[in-house]
Amino acid sequence: MRKPQVHWDDVEIGGELAGFDIEIKPRRVFLQISGSQDWYPVHHDPAFARKGGHEDIFMNTGFTQAALVRMITDWMGDGGFLRKLYFEMRRQQRPGDTMACRGKVTDRYRKDGEGWVEVDVWAENEREGVTSPGRAWVILPMRESS
C-alpha cells in the first residue's frame, strides 16, 4: 500500500521523525556483514577488535548509514529526495546495545524553486548517549498552490 506523501508545505520546524530501535544481537551482527559486505574483522571478531584497543566489536558505517537512511526515506516518502547526508561515527553501537534512530526537523526553506528541509538525525544508545550525530538535507514535493 502506498504511504501518504509528506509535502514541504506541511512540514513544521521542530517536528520529529518516526524513529525506531534495533537491538544489537548476534543475528544483527551477521545481518550487518551480509547487508554491508564489510568483512573487516573489527565488526565481527571480538579478539581482533580487542587487540586493536576496542572494548568489543562494533557496528559499521554501512549499517549505521542504512539505519539513518531507513528513517529518512520512510519519512520523506516516494516523492522525496535525500539530497545530502552527513553523519559521524563518534561512539559505538555494540552487541547488547539497543540502537535508537531519531530525527527532528530544524529548518525549512525554498532554494532554486525547490522545497528543502533540514533534519537533525542521530543514533543513540543507553550506554553511550548519542553515538552518531548527523544532518540530512531533503527535497520534498510542494503542493501546486505553493
Partner: peptide
C-alpha cells in the same frame, strides 16, 4: 538482491526498494 540484503540488515521494508 544486494539491495534486499542491505535493507534486511536494518529491517527496512520500504517497497520502493
Amino acid at each position: 538482491d544486494a539491495i534486499r540484503r542491505h535493507c534486511h540488515m536494518v529491517d527496512d521494508n520500504n517497497l520502493l526498494f
